Amino acid sequence: MTDETAGTPASPPPSPWERERPAPARVAPAREPLSRERVVDAAFTVLDRQGLDGLSMRQVAAEAGVAVSALYAHVSSKDDLLELMYARLFAGFAMPVPDPERWREQVRDYARSWRHLLLAHRDMARISMAHVPFTAELLPHVEALLAVFRTAGLPDRIAAEAGDLISTYIDGFVLEEGMWRDRAALQAGDKSSLARPDWREMAGEMQNYFASLPEQDFPHLRALAGLMVTDSADERFDIGLEIILRGLASYLPSPSV
Rank of each mutant, 00 (worst) to 15 (best):
M1Q: 12
M1V: 12
M1F: 06
T5A: 11
T5L: 11
A6T: 14
T8E: 07
A10T: 12
A10E: 13
S11I: 13
P13G: 12
S15F: 13
P16F: 02
W17P: 04
E18C: 10
E20G: 14
P22C: 05
A25G: 04
A28K: 15
P29Q: 11
R31A: 15
E32P: 08
E32C: 00
S35D: 09
R36H: 08
R38D: 00
V39C: 06
L47Q: 03
L52Y: 00
D53Q: 09
G54D: 02
G54C: 02
L55V: 02
M57Q: 10
Q59I: 01
V60C: 06
V66D: 05
V66T: 08
V68Q: 14
S69E: 11
A73L: 01
V75G: 00
S76K: 01
D80E: 09
L81F: 08
L81W: 07
L81D: 02
Y86M: 14
A87P: 02
F90G: 07
A94I: 10
M95W: 04
V97H: 10
P98R: 07
P98H: 03
E101T: 14
E101C: 10
E101R: 15
W103L: 08
E105Y: 03
Q106N: 11
D109V: 11
D109I: 10
A111Y: 03
W114P: 05
A120H: 01
D123K: 02
D123E: 04
M124G: 02
M124P: 01
A125C: 06
A125S: 15
V132K: 10
V132G: 00
V132Q: 10
V132M: 11
F134N: 09
P140Q: 04
A147L: 02
V148C: 07
T151W: 04
A152M: 00
L154M: 00
P155L: 08
P155Y: 09
D156K: 03
I158D: 09
A162S: 15
G163N: 13
D164M: 11
I166A: 05
I166S: 02
D171P: 05
D171F: 07
G172F: 07
V174C: 03
W180I: 01
A185R: 04
A185Y: 04
A188E: 03
L194S: 05
P197M: 06
W199Y: 07
M202Q: 10
A203K: 07
G204Y: 05
E205Y: 12
N208H: 11
Y209K: 08
F210G: 07
S212E: 09
E215S: 08
D217F: 00
F218W: 01
P219R: 02
L224H: 13
G226M: 08
L227M: 12
V229Y: 11
T230L: 09
D231M: 02
F237I: 07
D238E: 14
L241P: 03
I243C: 08
L245S: 07
L245H: 05
R246K: 11
G247H: 13
G247P: 04
L252Q: 05
S256D: 15
